[in-house]
Amino acid sequence: MADLEQRLQALEDREAIRNLIASYGPLADCGAADELAALWSEDGRYGVSGFADAHGRPEIAGLIEGAYHQQLMADGCAHLLGPVAIDLSGDTATARGHSVVLRWNGAAFEVLRVAANRWTLARIDGGWQVTRRDNALLQGDAAARELLRP
């Protein structure tokens, strides 16, 4: 029975992590800064290579409330996160995958960003939270590719 319980817990954990990551795009696109920041732990970090290194929920919310993101929403945008590969280890996990940001240019959607992502998560108070997310454009850099490596 213990083996079955462990397998069920792992499935539930993976589903919770996938749901958490999938909620990022809709929250970003509707400008729900506080709800998006609540995906992170209190002292979580969000590093976007060449753009930002936000530490803590207020700074992470500030990325959504900032002028750049507000203009992106005004133009029309979609943050799409692909499936993630999840490595579980008890109360911590790592998820790796891609993200794409599309922007409306007045006539059609254009690809604004294609990035590699590494999410580090922890079970905190019975639920999963992001402790760190690193995001880097896939422009041929080895550092960006490394984010996808198991």
Rank of each mutant, 00 (worst) to 15 (best):
A2G: 12
L4C: 12
L4S: 13
E5R: 09
Q6C: 02
Q6E: 04
Q9T: 07
D13F: 09
D13N: 14
I17H: 00
R18I: 06
N19K: 11
L20I: 15
I21W: 00
A22W: 14
G25V: 05
P26T: 11
L27I: 08
L27M: 15
D29R: 04
C30I: 09
C30A: 02
D34H: 11
D34Q: 07
L36N: 01
L36W: 01
A38P: 03
L39M: 03
W40E: 00
W40S: 00
D43Q: 10
D43M: 08
R45C: 09
Y46C: 15
V48Y: 10
G50I: 15
A52D: 04
D53T: 11
G56P: 04
R57Q: 01
E59Q: 13
E59N: 05
I64D: 02
G66P: 03
A67K: 04
Y68E: 08
H69R: 06
H69Y: 08
Q70G: 05
Q71L: 06
M73K: 15
M73C: 08
A74L: 04
A74F: 08
C77T: 11
C77V: 09
C77H: 07
A78D: 09
A78L: 13
H79R: 09
H79E: 13
L80G: 02
L80W: 06
L80V: 10
L81P: 00
A85G: 10
D87L: 10
D87A: 11
D87C: 09
L88N: 06
L88G: 05
L88D: 02
G90Y: 09
T92I: 10
T92V: 14
A93L: 03
R96P: 03
G97V: 06
G97Y: 04
V100I: 12
V101L: 15
V101R: 07
V101P: 11
G106L: 08
A107P: 05
A108T: 15
A108L: 13
V111I: 13
L112W: 10
L112I: 06
A116L: 12
N117W: 01
R118K: 08
W119P: 01
T120H: 09
T120A: 09
A122E: 02
I124P: 00
D125M: 10
G126F: 14
G127Y: 05
Q129R: 14
Q129H: 07
V130T: 14
T131N: 08
R132H: 15
D134R: 00
L137E: 13
G140C: 07
D141Q: 11
A142W: 15
A142Y: 08
R145G: 14
E146R: 11
L147Q: 04
